[in-house]
Nucleic acid binder design. Structure first.
Length: 228
DNA sequence: TACCAGGAGAAAA
DNA sequence: TTTTCTCATGGT
């Protein structure tokens, strides 16, 4: 039938602010402040954003611990590593050969721009476009970096966000990334602190209730969730 | 043992 | 333009 084909790019996502605030309120009430993203410096956050691609955070922590113990968790130290040595240090995070190349590309971009802090005052649209031009930096990784390393009001969309809001009936789940991101940003308004906490709460909640086999017993969103 | 997990890029269709 | 394949470890 004409007009019924799945065309993700054309699916709209215009949630009401009250619906998003209700979900946020329930999650916050259940889990409290998350202070996400874990990372002591902007550079550590940037490295973590690449290492966590399609990987559980627990494995990223092991890779970051390796970099720290080898005193390589700085921009200059990491650029000085060859790909094989870097890959060996980040092995626990999986995809280590690919991620080594991606990390090096990102470090070279940061170094060429004058270092991590040199991007602090770059306009958000410019920085996002530049990050997306770096090999290995896709939309989610770029937005992780913008929000958590540079404190810019960008809402991060990940697999957990799609899964949870799809189950809540607020999204289909296969919307284009930009459609979802803009939907959240327009409904909530620019708010770095809330965007950071919201994403952290989504991650926390998904790990407890929405990963692998459904585990909805005791879920704080049960009263508004369509997933049974 | 088999399956899954917070993605991205390249190749194929 | 969209879909499929590849990359890899560690937990369940």
């Amino acid at each position: 039938m004409a007009g019924t084909q799945k065309t993700p790019g054309l699916i709209s996502f215009t949630p009401s602010a009250s619906a998003l605030q209700q979900v946020y309120g329930l999650l916050f009430e259940a889990y409290g402040e998350q202070h996400w993203w874990p990372g002591e410096t902007p550079f550590e956050i940037i490295v973590g954003a690449v290492l966590t691609q399609n990987t559980a955070w627990v494995n990223v922590e092991k890779a970051i611990a390796n970099l720290k113990s080898a005193h390589r968790l700085t921009l200059d130290a990491l650029i000085g590593l060859d790909n094989d040595a870097l890959a060996e240090l980040i092995r626990p995070s999986g995809y280590f050969n690919i991620k080594a190349r991606r990390l090096k590309s990102l470090c070279e971009f940061l170094h060429a721009g004058g270092g991590v802090s040199a991007f602090d005052r770059v306009p958000i649209a410019v920085l996002r476009k530049d990050l997306l031009g770096v090999h290995g930096v896709g939309r989610e990784t770029a937005d992780d970096i913008l929000l958590y390393a540079y404190n810019r009001p960008v809402f991060v969309i990940d697999a957990y966000t799609r899964r949870i809001f799809s189950r809540l009936g607020l999204a289909r789940g296969d919307e284009d990334y930009e459609v979802l991101r803009q939907g959240f940003e327009q409904a909530l308004g620019p708010n770095v602190e809330q965007f950071s906490e919201y994403h952290g709460l989504i991650v926390r909640h998904a790990k407890d209730f929405c990963s692998k086999k459904p585990r909805c017993s005791g879920c704080c969103l049960a009263e508004i969730c369509e997933f049974k």
